[in-house]
Nucleic acid binder design. Structure first.
Lengths: 142, 142
DNA sequence: ATAGGTGCAAATGTTTTGCTGTCAA
DNA sequence: TTGACAGCAAAACATTTGCACCTAT
């Protein structure tokens, strides 16, 4: 069995050293389907490495996202969330409970490209997100 | 000359009382073109009302955005920014300096509507934002 | 051996809140 | 008159950072 923990399939390495802490953080984000925040990752990783600190989790989440191993999501709530899926996709956030789900959206039309061209910005990337009410919240007749 | 400070043209009122503090906060956000944060609004309003507290600014910004008089922007940086322009439009944020500019984007295509329909969410609103490098930052050869 | 990384705790920066007093209606 | 709101300060909250020690290379 080949283990690729802490390494992309291409053999790329995050940071300069391959530490247990970094591998565990990447592993946790990748295995989580719910777009976790730093606290969740911390609690998860602590099951394996009880002495890891929250600061280390933050530092690694930052490094991993800067180097493109994971994605930082600054949508909706009051804290930053992470996504182990780095392929380009959108997110839909529940306005009531904050739950995030993935949405596959086709490439944005040339109409939007035109809108961008009216600005004086360069290297522009669009980010399309959605907000709504999830099924679970809708069913809870409050 | 008709003054509409603190009141929408329709005569709607924010909150239950028309306080000087609330009017000044709304005024400040409306007159500012740079999508200010709470601190900026605080400093601005303090010129007129030196005894206003930051807490009051936050409470009013919150109330005004909940009631639709202004718009809350949770994009990019580490703090919440506000927009006095409540008509539906997008924003483009500079990745380097955080500067925000407005972008007028045509209505999103039906292709996107379809993507939304694959989710189990209701009352979905799309939010399209852009990130890039502004002209000023590009010119500063760093 | 050594630079990069970790743990810990304190600091930071933004936003919220409890309480008491004030003021718009 | 009275309840919504303001001022103040402390608390809450997520996140960052300084420093001494550790460890992957």
């Amino acid at each position: 069995m080949i283990t690729t923990v802490g390494t992309l399939q291409t053999g790329l390495q995050a940071g300069k050293r391959r530490t247990r802490q970094r591998r565990a953080v990447l592993e946790a984000v990748r295995n989580c389907m719910t777009h976790p925040d730093a606290q969740w990752v911390y609690e998860q990783v602590r099951k394996e490495l009880p002495r890891i600190s929250l600061g280390t989790v933050y530092r690694n989440l930052d490094l991993l996202s800067r180097e493109g191993f994971i994605q930082q999501l600054k949508i909706g709530g009051s804290y930053t969330r992470y996504d182990g899926d780095v392929h380009s996709h959108s997110h839909i956030t529940c306005r009531r409970c904050g739950m995030i789900e993935n949405v596959d959206v086709p490439p944005l039309s040339s109409v939007i490209e035109e809108a961008i061209s009216t600005t004086h910005f360069s290297d522009v990337t669009p980010q399309l997100d959605f907000y709504g009410i999830c099924m679970r919240c809708r069913q809870q007749a409050n």
